[in-house]
């Protein structure tokens, strides 16, 4: 199966007063048609920057894509001109943002905002677009869709707004949707509903989904494959079950250990990763995770490990992976 989206060695730099930082440092991952891929990492790991680069939405300046390829359906999006990339946005790749409260224009009706992409990309008339918008609102489980079209964003709750955002992302039947922390701003109960809805719709409509998140619970439940990112690099990749069963990068192991779990005794302390997230202007030589790593050796300080295959559908960027592979997390 050829990949729908293939990111190869993407490098994105930002110039800041503190110096140039590499927010994405040779990031590679791919997404197959109809697949749900999670990109996991803490704040500043480069997961959102990579996603924004796909739609060429990195603000330039200060940001700049300085290397790599983003192949979507076989074509390099980085070589598209402004007009061509606009035909991709919304039409071939949909995007869902983190904050449903601020992602809808407060002074335009829901209908206006929903139909805009369809009229723009599919050339529908106002009546056709309205009809399709009503269908989409039904699809994402919003009651009374006809009157919702005339409503304004402040009439809707956070969960409903995120449903509207999902409907908008689906409106032009794109083969790929990128969801950047789609549930972070929502209540826990609504989070589950929204994720369930997204998974269900993607499966039903055959849409591939990239979920960017820092929530490992989401990964376990909804993703087919996982890319773990740290300091602008993918440090571990594999099937979701595989990563959970046999995490082989110390960072992934640390993330999994720091999640509260029902099968451990109540009241037992969490096991956080020591140290702070890295300062991208002051990355250590060699492996970026080395200062916080409990498995660090002299080798790690000298050389940055490459992302190498470890087993069936499993890659890890750590010199110690062989030893960690197969040892289940605590």
């Amino acid at each position: 199966m050829t990949a729908l989206l293939e990111i190869k060695d993407l490098v994105v730099e930002f110039s800041t007063p503190g110096g140039t930082i590499r927010a994405a440092n040779a990031v590679s991952y791919d997404v197959n048609p109809g697949e749900i891929v999670a990109v996991v990492g803490e704040s500043g790991s480069g997961k959102s920057v990579t996603a924004l680069s796909i739609l060429r939405l990195i603000p330039d300046p200060p940001g700049r894509v300085c290397g790599g390829e983003i192949l979507f359906q076989g074509e390099n999006l980085l070589q598209y001109n402004e007009e061509q990339i606009r035909q991709v946005r919304g039409r071939r790749i949909g995007m869902i943002f983190q904050e449903p409260m601020t992602s809808l224009n407060p002074v335009l009706s829901i209908g206006r905002q929903m139909t805009e992409a369809m009229r723009l990309h599919l050339g529908l008339t106002a009546a056709q677009a309205d009809a399709k918008a009503i269908d989409l609102l039904k699809l994402v489980g919003i009651s009374d869709p006809e009157s919702r079209l005339k409503a304004y964003p402040h009439h809707l709750s956070g969960g409903m707004r995120q449903r509207v955002m999902i409907a908008m992302a689906l409106s032009c039947d794109p083969p790929l949707i990128i969801a950047d922390e789609p549930t972070t701003a929502l209540d826990v109960t609504i989070q589950a509903q929204i994720l369930e809805l997204m998974k269900d719709l993607c499966r039903r409509l055959g849409v591939a989904l990239v979920i960017i998140t820092h929530n490992l619970g989401i990964v376990a439940r909804y993703a087919d494959r996982v890319n773990v990112m740290y300091a602008g690099r993918v440090v571990e990749r594999g099937g979701a079950r595989e990563i959970y069963r046999r995490p082989s990068h110390p960072y992934t192991i640390g993330l999994l250990n720091s999640v509260p779990r029902l099968d451990r005794p109540r009241g037992s302390p969490l096991d956080p990763i020591p140290g702070n997230p890295p300062d991208l202007t002051l990355l250590p030589s060699g492996c970026a995770f080395q200062p916080r790593c409990t498995h660090c050796t002299a080798h790690c300080a000298a050389e940055a490990p490459a992302l190498l295959p470890l087993g069936q559908e499993h890659w890890s960027a750590c010199f110690e992976s062989e030893g960690l592979y197969g040892v289940a997390a605590k």
Binding site: L57, R89, R91, M95, F97, S103, P106, E116
Partner: peptide, 21 residues
């Protein structure tokens, strides 16, 4: 505002973003 970024992600042109959004 994020809704302007959101409008850009669905492929709305700069001109339309200025006047309509």
């Amino acid at each position: 505002e994020q809704y302007i970024a959101a409008a850009r992600t669905v492929g709305v042109s700069d001109f339309r973003i200025m006047w309509r959004h």
